[in-house]
Design a protein around this nucleic acid. Sequence first.
DNA 1: GTGAAAGCGCTAACAC
DNA 2: GTGTTAGCGCTTTCAC
Lengths: 339, 339
Amino acid sequence: MANRPVTIKDIAEKLNISVSTVSRALKNNPEISLQTRENVQKLAKELKYQPNPLAVALKTKKSNTIGVVVPQIVSSFYASVVKGIEQVADEQGYQVFVSSSNEKMEKEEKNVNGFLNMRMDGIILSLSRATSTYDHIHKIQDMGVPMVLFDRTSKELDVSKVVADDAAAAYTAVNHLIDSGAKRVAFLTGMEYMLFGRNRMRGYKKALEDKGFSLDKTLISRCDFTVEGAKKAAMELLSRSNRPDAFFAISDDLAIGTIAAAKELGLRIPEDVAVVGFSNSRRSRYMEPSISTMDQNPKQVGREAAKLLFDQMENKPNAKDVKEVVVTADLIVRTSSDK
Amino acid sequence: MANRPVTIKDIAEKLNISVSTVSRALKNNPEISLQTRENVQKLAKELKYQPNPLAVALKTKKSNTIGVVVPQIVSSFYASVVKGIEQVADEQGYQVFVSSSNEKMEKEEKNVNGFLNMRMDGIILSLSRATSTYDHIHKIQDMGVPMVLFDRTSKELDVSKVVADDAAAAYTAVNHLIDSGAKRVAFLTGMEYMLFGRNRMRGYKKALEDKGFSLDKTLISRCDFTVEGAKKAAMELLSRSNRPDAFFAISDDLAIGTIAAAKELGLRIPEDVAVVGFSNSRRSRYMEPSISTMDQNPKQVGREAAKLLFDQMENKPNAKDVKEVVVTADLIVRTSSDK
DNA sequence: GTGAAAGCGCTAACAC
DNA sequence: GTGTTAGCGCTTTCAC
């Protein structure tokens, strides 16, 4: 048991050469004779030699790893973002480590420090809800470690970012509803403090305006951010005499609630009331084949963030510039399922 | 920019003492005079000294980290398990690193090797669907690294495991339905190769038997593992003259499909047809307040796995024994929502 | 009570 | 083409 891992020194001794020669031969350094290189590589394979990344990192101050800090791991949005990051990191031969802040600033700081201490070569992070000071973020910058923020960012931070264009997505969604014949599009949103809610409302209003509709404030409804809350709110709207003929709901839960309300009232979807929901997860799309959704493209967010990070790490021209990438959501149109 | 991290040596020089003294003082070693200890610790704080875990790990062959390999990160089940692991690791002062195999054996091996190379002190792993050989698992054992398997395990592996008791959960669920008045409980499951499906079926049959019901095979329905598939299957069952008055569905998607079918047929839930679903995610529970679900307790799975791992790491008596912990699911009973 | 020295596994000047 | 040496930041004998 407890096999000691084989080191470069073991190889050197067996071959009666020096460790530096082994080190060079392993990296196929042309200064070393082909003969020696082959011998070394062959033996390394036989012995199942694996370089000790700790030693390498300690020496070179590079670990070939990147760290990702997300507010929560139990979230299909963040999970998909991570997947996107992993894809491009994989291509670059980097390992990805993920840790979650659980929406706590304290944990976020701990995670960041852990990554920094581990000498990770780059950090991708989405701020926790509780994060109010940015010392740990500045520390990353002070240490010269490449960093990219995504989704939950802050204007106060002078860092490259990847965000979703919520207003544009809402604009697309509402346009789609109107183009499909809707005359009275309701907007179902959450509490006012939600930034993306405000942005999506902006897109909603802009779309109405551009289509020549006047804004009917009674069609805007706020509810708590749950299926039940949405259902209640939608029930109210749909029970009116001049009920809306379409809904744009800013989350998948709200869309689900809306559908439930419509069904309970015996309204057909999308004939009587069309619905576009906003979605992070595939599930909500499958739940109700008759509604269209805006897909936030979380994987794309991850890919873009990773690309930005690698640009910085590779020190490409202008890599140090602070960039902001906007990922737009896709409208996934579903036609009514055949019964 | 690029602030060089402060080292033990920096402290030693400023205080005109040796690095070894600093090292000892930092760990509050009583051999060092209180005076010196205080000086060192004070300066360390001022300078924001952070030990370099790479150097420590290289020297001590201990990294104070544990690695978790999951088949997928986009899954509320695994995400919750990770959360449970993080909770107990946190208490022990360990950092947790997560990586996902994406259901590929190749990636799983890579992840394991990465963790091993990083000298992680323990590994918690759930096998990918594609894993067919166990060399990488045996390697962990050969290196004497503590390990715990969870959820997707293998009888061939002589390792501590944490699993869910699917049969017991199904037994509880079906009992609940019968106790609530059901006379004809349907069982909605997926393909035969799904081990947990078979186990849940066992519990279903056992519950019927213990309640004195004879098994009606026409009430067992297999469908593909999607909402639509379930809906179709449930429609068929519910359209019969002697339709079931209750369903036990082995996943949340299947429960959702069942509900959709019942509603489409104008049947009330739970009055006309009661449903118990199996669930990993909170969402499905909120979606339909009138159905009860079995909650797999994923967080508990994580906590148990971590506990088992730390037992091994701390070399407690009998720690080397291979243990198997069974986590049972909770029945979450929901009563019909008030309209 | 403190210091000197060795060494963890590796890389990279600098020799020759 | 290859070896020698120093050193990354830390811990840990072994001295005194």
